[in-house]
Design a protein around this nucleic acid. Sequence first.
DNA 1: GAGCACTGC
Length: 881
Amino acid sequence: METHKKLFRRRRDESHEEEDDEAAIMRRVKRQRTISATVPESEEERPPSRAMPIEKLRTLSRQQYLKRREEKKLQELKEEVEDEHYLFQGVNLTETECRRWRYKDRVYQLSKKKKSDDGSSEEYRIPEAYDDEGAVHQKERFGVALKRYRGASDLEQTWEESQIERARFSYGSKNKKQASDKDYPLVFENQIAFIKASVMDGDEFDDKKSHDETTTAAAAKATAALDDKLQEERKTLPIYQYRDAFLQAVKDHQVLIIVGETGSGKTTQIPQYLHEAGYTKRGKIGCTQPRRVAAMSVAARVAKEMGVRLGHEVGYAIRFEDCTSSNTVLKYMTDGLLLKEFGDQPDLAEYTVLVLDEAHERSLPTDMLFALVKDLARSRPDLKVLISSATLDAEKFSDFFDSAPVFKIPGRRFPVEINHTLAPEADYLDAAIVTALQIHTKEPPGDILMFLTGQEEIETAEQILKQRTRGFGTKIAELIICPIYAGLPTELQAKIFEPTPQGARKVVLATNIAETSVTIDGIKYVIDPGFCKKKSYNPKTRMDSLQVAPISKASANQRAGRSGRTGPGKCFRLYTASNYQDLEDNNVPEIQRTNLSNVVLILKSMGIDDLINFEFMDQPPPEALLQALELLYALSALNKNGLLTKVGKKMVGFPLDPMLSKMVVASDKYKCSEEIITIAAMLSVGNAIFYCPKDKRVHAQNAKISFHVGDVGDHIALLRVYNSWKENNFSRQWCYENYIQVRSMKTARDIRDQLEGLLEKAGIELTSNPNDVDAIKKCITSGFFPNIARLDKYGSYRTLKHPHTVHLHPGSGLAEVLPRWVVYHELVLTAKEYMRQVTEVKPAWLVEIAPHYYQMKDVDDPALKKMPRGVGRIGKELVCF
DNA sequence: GAGCACTGC
């Protein structure tokens, strides 16, 4: 019931937001018309948008568009004029060229003058539709932006007009044929020579065969009543001709490994086949996905194919949203959610079949599920388990599941030509850019996907590409540059789905987001420098690091495959064939490169005590396990026998990391649970609360400083941010004015709501103590006392328990204050070893709060650096502390 | 005075 209520609230929120675009347009137009400074208008005060006639909206939308276009064109003109000035100074130009140049310059000067006369506002605005509920199908997610590009509604019609205008005026290269070597010799200084190494075969799949094949009686019966077209489509999927063999294999074996390549239809079809074969008569089929978007979209697709309403027979469940009912027999869900259900009901009695999809991704929850499901299968012979993976690395899965048989389904994919460089490239960014330009001038039409490691690299590449292509003017076809990375506002992300205009070419500069999470149509060329940013955890220093490293062969192949989705493709690897051979086969599974304290807590709560001998598919590092045990013992989540304590049981109830859950549990004592769950929610969102664009850094920082008044520390500052947002009715406008990310704030609100609901279950009263800052700080310390650092004489810090030199992150509100004693939320190795999210503490609190961890001598005498160290046992396991 | 690949409960 509760979830239904929640759903209802969300739906209401969403419909609320649909109006936002219109309201925003009105607000902006108003601002354009009034010269005086704008009075911020909260969302709730705006007039009902339905009152606006469509005609008027269209006009407003048009005005809006024109203004943006004016700015953009002006900027382009400015760059063009400056470039030409730089490039052609002293060069003998023809008379026409001179005239054109003078004309451009004059237009620019005039428009600049006009603009300064207008007196434009300095206020920074994040683009509308910035937020992302994070819980929508890719298409829905970008729907708003896409609609605009497809002219779907009246309001959006203006886009068509703008498209026409754009084609007519701005792209002189329209319909220009791709320049070949002959009519346009290459001018790049450092051409890169590639050698064609291999062709990744497309899968031999004969479509005709399946059409000719007669449907089996059972399938015909089950599907007779359903929509013909969808059913025909189902039959064309590669998996269809293996339907009977597959069902027989499931019947014969309890555990089955399924290797189905992209495009085989396994994710949508397998649960349906099982349903048709009667596996849902006595229970549900649960199918896990590593991503929320996938769970939702696949469920929606299957519901459509089965002709039922989503949420009835076919449903999905993800965090914050349960779209299932008592009738649901096919349940798509995220892997993390099934793990949660495992905790609540260890025999998963309501399921007759479990499908763990995308197993090759080896996400942390999936890895934990492998071990748990393997165990469960032994005690529940009636349960069928299907492990579905895209790689041929099925041997390993089979070995793990006691030699379970492997069922292979071919996919449908086009051939991809793989090219390697002849020699290694020293500067892969430059090489990637040169390659993109080579493709652009020499290869037939088709879009390019370039893999880079992060935001900064993408921004640099964008800049360089713009400069270099501008140099060619209209001599080459237009190259449209589209960046995409997770931190980019949703509206800007949607740009990559915009169809490429005739005669132009699109180059998408992407992080790993394009490897699995986002699929772009029309990509024909992939440029793969062979690197990505990888996160790893060092249990010895208790520090996370995020660094650039070579990718794996699996990643390289996944990247290459991205060019062969809609037609034959080409992949350009900026490393040699022998470099490729040296790459690791697969990515290191997350369980081997992460802090395991949460994993250990969850497993302990399931009664799994012997973690050293617990059957993981890949064993995590023993030091990481020991360190996790040590931490949980220090937090009093485990007793000296390594068993879960009362505190530990309470902690498991919260979907948070153990130190955060401990902090929440402790809030009962300090009577400040209201404040603490807010802080916990804000901390779980990550470091994406404040938005700091380079050009408005001063404004953004001033806004940030206002939350830090009194040097209260970063935790309290986060609390203030949330509460101010709440006081302003969760207004989006307020976020813009304070350089706060709306998207992150909404996530924080969802998490906070969830935590509030869970407090009751844990028997913690909801109490507020907003004025007792010390109580809040003590409560934070109750969870984070292992993370204490003391100022040293050089202005850096020394961690107290396991001494390392660390630094205050410059983004912290205390960066200029340098308190003597601090508690920090996390330690991250980037350029330096930084403490992020820091608050001042009093050393006396440490002995008061954690007498088992600190003694007077630790905190009294700064000169005494020797820490007490010992070795002990937790249960059977040896632990250092 | 620095910067955050991607997921998930």
